[in-house]
């Protein structure tokens, strides 16, 4: 037998008459109430007791409601932040989806052999003059390959590694590309003037150029095939003493925001007939 159950000393003290009497009275009272449940006076008494407690219960109920509201508020705040995050991810996914669809459509329609590349690092300079992409010699990318987007030119491959390449962007001061005004077929050179402005140079003063004209690649260089759009004419300056106009253009590609690009394989440009290029 466990020690706790061991009874050491039991001494019964008789229950007093008062206790029996009280017990009897209480039992009779309880049973009377049970049998008189439907009595209107008992119901009135019941209502009076409930009313007397109403104020206390209201206070507790109010505090309970406040606590519930606080919990609900906290829950809703968490839910809102979750939804904001989800919304942001969905927006990002939608934008990515749109961008990739555009790129896929472009790739399918393009006569060139294109390699899709993702930008994995970029120059920290605000002017952004070069980026690193995740394709290299393994994917058949060579030095000098053109880098484009459906909207326009991006730059060219400057160095290639096994699986990465350095892209010189059109915003680089040393970047030059032979171009022409699409409407009037006037030739020029697209280059960067300063950190913000791109210009077309070597355009004679008497050449037919208007604001809003499209600037496309001419195909005279070995890097870019012809007719790839590059920029739009926004300003024409003829006041300089030189023989040429200075045409300020606005490129179509914002290099600070590029994520995925196409690299045009040089072989595909070389094998295409001139008709396809021009």
């Amino acid at each position: 037998m466990p020690k706790e159950f061991k009874v050491v000393d039991i001494q019964f003290i008789s229950i007093t008459r008062r206790e029996y009497f009280t017990f009897l009275i209480c039992i009779v009272l309880s049973l009377s109430l049970i049998f008189l449940n439907d009595n209107p006076q008992i119901n009135n008494l019941r209502a009076a007791v409930v009313d007397s407690w109403a104020h206390t219960l209201q206070i507790i109920s109010k505090y309970r409601s406040m606590a519930e509201m606080r919990n609900e508020l906290t829950r809703l705040r968490h839910r809102t932040s979750d939804l904001l995050l989800e919304n942001s991810q969905l927006r990002k996914a939608a934008l990515e989806n749109h961008r990739l669809r555009t790129m896929l459509k472009f790739k399918e329609a393009s006569p060139y052999s294109l390699v899709v590349a993702t930008v994995i690092a970029r120059d920290q300079d605000p002017a952004v003059r070069s980026v690193i992409v995740d394709v290299g010699e393994r994917e058949g990318v060579q030095k000098g390959d053109a880098v484009i987007l459906p909207m326009g030119i991006v730059g060219k491959i400057l160095h290639t590694g096994e699986s990465t390449s350095l892209v010189q962007l059109y915003t680089d001061y040393n970047f030059r590309v032979a171009c022409k005004i699409q409407r009037s077929r006037v030739n020029g050179i697209l280059q960067q003037q300063d950190s913000k402005t791109s210009i077309v140079t070597q355009v004679p003063k008497n050449a037919d150029v208007r604001i809003g004209d499209l600037v496309v690649t001419s195909g005279y260089s070995y890097v870019f095939p012809a007719e790839i759009q590059a920029a739009k004419v926004v300003e024409i300056k003829t006041d300089s003493p030189s023989l040429f106009k200075k045409i300020v253009v606005e490129p179509f590609v914002d290099v600070t925001r590029i994520e995925d690009v196409f690299v045009i394989k040089r072989d595909s440009v070389a094998t295409l007939p001139n008709k396809a290029l021009n």
Binding site: K3, E4, F5, V7, V8, I10, Q11, I15, E19, F23
Partner: peptide, 21 residues
């Protein structure tokens, strides 16, 4: 009331009860 009566009897029994009891 019945529970109170039963519990009240505990006082009339001088028993050394363990926790389990």
């Amino acid at each position: 009331v019945i529970a109170a009566f039963m519990a009240g009897n505990y006082k009339h029994i001088q028993v050394k009860l363990g926790t389990q009891s």
